[in-house]
C-alpha cells in the first residue's frame, strides 16, 4: 500500500501531452492546480472547482475527466492530455480551426475544457449527430457565446475528419 502523508509533498510523474513531466504535490492538491502551478500548463482553466462548469476538463488515460475532481496523486504514472497538446507546434488543429471559423468562443474561458471533451469524444465517433453533441456539451457551461457555434464547429470538425479518412484512400 502506498501511503502519502498529509503535511509533506510527494513526487508525481506523469506523461503530459506525450512528454514526461513531474512535480511535487501534497496529497490534497487537485490535478487542476498541479497542472497549472507545478507544471505551468495554464491552458487548463479552473472555474467552479466542484465539477459543474467543465472548464478544467482534461483527458486522463484518454477519457475526459474533471481535473478539479481528481487528485494530482491519482494521476501519478498516467497519461494526461490538455489543450496545449492539441496544437503542439503552435498550429491549431482542425477542431480548433473550426471553433475559430464558427465563432465558437468569445471570452474563451470555457473553451479548453470543451475542446478536450470534444477531442476525446470525437475520437470514437466519426459521425455524431447534433443531439449527441448537445448532450456532450451539457457537461460544460459557456456564459457568453452560447452553444450554437460550438455545435456547428464540432459537426464540421467531425465532417472534416471523415473527409480526411476518405482522402487517404484516394
Amino acid at each position: 500500500m502506498k501511503r502519502l502523508g498529509a503535511g509533506s509533498r510527494h513526487r508525481i510523474g506523469l506523461t503530459l501531452n506525450g512528454r514526461e513531466a513531474g512535480g511535487w504535490a501534497e496529497p490534497r492538491m487537485l490535478l487542476s492546480d498541479f497542472l497549472r502551478h507545478a507544471l505551468g500548463a495554464t491552458g487548463t482553466h479552473v472555474g467552479c472547482e466542484h465539477g459543474v462548469c467543465g472548464a478544467c476538463t482534461v483527458r486522463l488515460d484518454g477519457a475526459p475527466v474533471r481535473a478539479c475532481l481528481t487528485l494530482a496523486v491519482q494521476a501519478d504514472g498516467r497519461r494526461v492530455d490538455t489543450v496545449e497538446g492539441l496544437a503542439p507546434e503552435g498550429e491549431l488543429n482542425d477542431l480548433q480551426k473550426a471553433f475559430r471559423r464558427h465563432h465558437a468562443l468569445q471570452c474563451g474561458f470555457c473553451t479548453p475544457g470543451i475542446l478536450m471533451s470534444l477531442d476525446a469524444w470525437l475520437d470514437g465517433r466519426p459521425a455524431p449527430d447534433e443531439g449527441e453533441i448537445r448532450e456532450l456539451l451539457s457537461g460544460h457551461l459557456c456564459r457568453c457565446t452560447g452553444y450554437g457555434g460550438i455545435v456547428a464547429a464540432a459537426l464540421e470538425a467531425a465532417r472534416a475528419a471523415r473527409a480526411g479518412d476518405v482522402g487517404e484512400d484516394d
Binding site: 500500500m1 502506498k2 501511503r3 502519502l4 498529509a6 492546480d33 472547482e49 487528485l71
Partner: peptide, 21 residues
C-alpha cells in the same frame, strides 16, 4: 475551494483497504 489536508492511501487490494478502514 481546496480540500483540508489528509493522508492519502492507495490500496493495492481489498484486504488493505478494509484494514486501513
Amino acid at each position: 475551494m481546496k480540500p483540508a489536508p489528509f493522508d492519502y492511501l492507495r490500496a493495492d487490494d481489498e484486504e488493505e483497504a478494509v484494514a486501513a478502514l
